[in-house]
Amino acid sequence: MSRNKKWIWFGIGAVFSITLPMMVSNPYALQFFINMLLFAYLATGWNIIGGYAGQMALGNGVYFGIGAYVSTVLFVYENLSPWVGMVLGGGVAAFIALLMGRMTFRLSGSYFSLSTVAVLHVIRLFVLSSNRLFGYETRGAQGIYVPWRGQSFLNMQFEGKTEYYYIILAFFVIGLFISWWIKTSRMGYYLAAINTNQEATSSLGVNVMGMKLKASCISAFMTALGGSFYAQFIMMVDPSRVLGYDLSVQIMLYAAIGGRGTLAGPVIAAFLLAPLNDLLRAVFGTTVSGLSLVFYGLALMLIIYFIPQGIWPYVSEKLKEMKGSAK
């Protein structure tokens, strides 16, 4: 694709996404798009450690939960703005990613994946069974409701959904930019090399552990910010919503279906699949819960079987082939 064409597409995307809330007045429909952007953002965050660096982390939900809990607790009990709270939450998440990474990056392949799930379960069970955490009342499985303190940007509370849409759009754009920047920078090449052959990369003098830790911390920070946003948006946190194992798999699944290690893959898959959940709920009602996850599971199996590299690498390759034959 020529450079000009790329900018045209970019322009169309920008105009469409900015004017969308003006075209869509139904708040329910806008929620579709908020969900899409949130999951595209989360999958992009996962992709940095899981795609670029090839470390199959299956517990990224833990950072989502940390972000959600930290900003919410500080907002509810200390009256601290969620904007500050989410940065603190991101810091905590990055710190935990650092600790975890130092311990678990030595493990190979499946063992690493297992250890990330184990840590997720430990933290989930810990939150689930504690009524107080660090002196703040978190009420275990019940979770915390975020009180309404009036519409204000500082409180990240709005009566409509339009503002939330713009916030997550900004998150998404910044996240995508970070992902692009990492991919095209020296770090991206190092990560790709680690993904291909860790021993060879290490023997060339690349600090493999340092690179993985850096990628993991960035990924954790991004995911935590998403968690903070989600908590403000739905106005509550509880362990099953923000610390679930299913959520972790879902984040990973978009990236795996779209194409691990590509910039656009996770975004495309999230845009295609995330609305399915809302759509099915709209069609069948809440009586058929779990139906969207049935489709997600099926989609993952089919993609891994037929096009293991993911949708986006496959499609872009086919497009190139078509162009080649047209000439």
Partner: peptide, 23 residues
């Protein structure tokens, strides 16, 4: 040596089965 794609496939299978039963 440790195939990631099988891990992903069976993760998808697990999700499919548990939520299929739920539905």
């Amino acid at each position: 040596r440790e195939p990631v794609s099988v891990l992903l496939f069976t993760a998808g299978l697990g999700m499919f089965l548990s939520n299929g039963v739920l539905a």
